[in-house]
Computed example of a mutant assay.
Amino acid sequence: MKSVSEPLVIMILFMTVVLISLSIFFFSTFSVDATTASVEYGYVKSLFREIAFSIPEILNGQTIYTRHPSSLVSLGFKKIPVNLVIQLELGNNTLITAFNKTEFYALTGGIRRNVLEDVRGSIVYGVNQSVVSEIERLALVREYYYNGWTMIELDTARVYYSIYKTGASNYYLEIIITDFGGYHNIDDPPTVIGTGSIRLRYESYYAEVLEFSPVRNVTIFFNQSIITLNDIIPSDNSIDPNSGSLTVRIVYKKIAVLIS
C-alpha cells in the first residue's frame, strides 16, 4: 500500500481550511443580513405603530417627521378599493347620498425576507372594523408575508363617529373620514421620492365639512357592513319624532405624506 504523499496531505489540509473559512464567511454574511433585516423591519414596524397611535394628534395639527434605516426596507403606498356610502334621510323625508368614497391609500413597508414569526400575519395596531367609535382606532397597522416579501401596511380605511346629546331628545353626530394624500398636492397619492424618511402633516384647510339638520336617519354602507342610527344611538335613548332633532356633521380630512 502506497503512503499518501506529503504534498497531497498539504493540499487536502489547505482545501479543508478554505472550505471551513468559506462556510464561516457565508454563515456570518447570512447572519449579519438576517440581523439587519430584522432590525430594519422592527424599526419600521414601531414607526408605523407610532404613526397610527398619533393620528388624532396629526389631525389636530401636529407634524411628524422621522428617519429610518433603509438599506433593505422600502416604503411606499398602495390603493385600497372600498365601497363607502353615507346616506341621510332628512327631515322632509328626502333620501340623499351625503358622502361616498371608492378608495383609500395605505402607507406600506416591504422587505424581501421573511422576518415574521407567523407567516399568516397579524394586526400590529388597531381593529379590523369598518366603523369605530374611538378615534384611537381610526388607523390600522397589519403585517403579512406575500410572494417572498414581508409587508406592513398602515391605513385609515374606516369611519369614526362620535355622538353627543345636546338636549332631552336632541343629538349631534360627527363622522370623520381621513385618508393620506400627496405632500405637495393633497389630491394626489402620497409623495414617494425615496425611502429614508417620512413626514406627515395636516392643515385645517384640507378638510371638507358638510352639515345637515334635521336628520331622521343615517345609514353607513362600508363594503359588507351596514350601520344605521339605531346602531349608533345608545339603546336606552331615542329621538322624539316631534320634539327631537339630529344634526349630522361629516368631516373628510387628508393627511399630507412625503416619503423622501
Rank of each mutant, 00 (worst) to 15 (best):
N100G: 00
G121K: 02
P234F: 13
D33R: 02
V32S: 02
G244N: 09
R249V: 11
A207S: 15
R120V: 00
G110T: 10
S225H: 08
T156V: 09
S46R: 15
L19G: 13
G182Q: 01
E136L: 10
L59H: 11
L72T: 07
Y125K: 02
L138N: 04
S122Q: 10
L8H: 11
V209P: 08
S21T: 14
T16Y: 01
I259A: 01
T108V: 06
T156N: 07
L95M: 12
Y161D: 01
N60T: 06
L22P: 00
G181H: 06
A106H: 03
V141A: 02
S122G: 02
N100R: 07
I58M: 09
N217M: 10
Y41V: 09
V141T: 00
Y206M: 10
V127R: 14
V218F: 10
F221A: 03
L229V: 07
V192N: 04
K79N: 13
Y65V: 14
I255W: 04
H184Y: 15
P81M: 06
F104I: 06
T195E: 03
E134K: 13
V119I: 14
Y206D: 12
R67I: 06
I64M: 14
A139I: 03
P56T: 09
Q129W: 09
R158K: 15
G110E: 13
Y172H: 04
T66G: 00
V127N: 12
I239N: 05
E57I: 00
S5G: 10
P7N: 04
I226A: 10
G42E: 04
V141P: 03
F99W: 09
Q62Y: 11
I177Q: 02
L47K: 06
E40S: 07
S238R: 15
L138Q: 14
V124C: 03
T35R: 12
F221N: 14
A98Q: 10
E57F: 13
Y206P: 01
L72R: 14
S38Y: 12
E203P: 00
N237K: 15
D33A: 05
S28W: 08
I239M: 11
V159W: 08
E40M: 06
F53W: 09
T156F: 00
Y65I: 14
P7I: 08
I135K: 06
E143R: 02
M15R: 00
T108Q: 00
N237R: 15
L59W: 09
R199D: 00
S213Y: 14
D231F: 08
F212A: 09
E211N: 10
T247I: 12
I80Y: 07
A98V: 12
E174V: 09
I176M: 08
I51K: 05
G194S: 12
T195C: 01
F77N: 04
S245C: 05
R120A: 12
L200C: 05
I239P: 06
V132S: 03
L140K: 05
V141L: 05
N60Q: 15
K78P: 00
R158D: 02
L75C: 01
L140A: 05
I193F: 06
F180Y: 12
Y171V: 08
S204K: 13
A139E: 01
I10N: 10
D155P: 01
H184R: 08
